Simulated scan of single mutants.
Amino acid sequence: MNAPEEILKVWRKFDHFPMETLTKAWYYQQNTASKQRDVSLMKEHREQYGITGNCFDLSLWLLDEFEQEGIEAFPVGHDLGTPDAHVAVIAKSEHGYRYFCDLGDQWLNPVLIDSDCEDFHTDKLRGFFPAAEIQVNAEGNVLKVQYHRPNGKMSQQDFVTTPIAITDLWKAAEISQNTIKQRPLLECRIPFKDEIAHWEFYNWSSVLSTTQGLYEEPATEDIKQWCTRIHNKTGYDKTMLSEALHFYKSMQ
Rank of each mutant, 00 (worst) to 15 (best):
L80W: 05
K35C: 07
C101S: 14
V142S: 13
Q212Y: 14
G70E: 06
M240S: 11
H121C: 10
L60C: 06
I71D: 09
Y49S: 01
K13G: 00
I230S: 11
S34Q: 11
Q157S: 10
T210H: 13
N151D: 15
H198E: 03
H231Y: 12
D237T: 13
E200P: 00
P18N: 09
W107R: 12
L80H: 06
D15A: 15
I166D: 04
V136H: 02
G235D: 01
I113Y: 03
L103W: 10
E139N: 14
T23S: 14
E221V: 05
H121P: 00
A138V: 08
D237I: 14
Y27L: 12
E94S: 13
H198K: 13
G152E: 01
D119C: 06
T52W: 03
A244N: 10
P75W: 09
W11A: 03
T239E: 15
G140C: 12
G104C: 04
Q177I: 00
I164G: 12
L208Q: 05
F129C: 05
L214W: 04
L58R: 10
K24N: 08
F66W: 05
T32R: 13
T52K: 00
Q252C: 03
V160Q: 08
L143A: 04
E20I: 00
W204Q: 10
N141L: 12
V39Y: 03
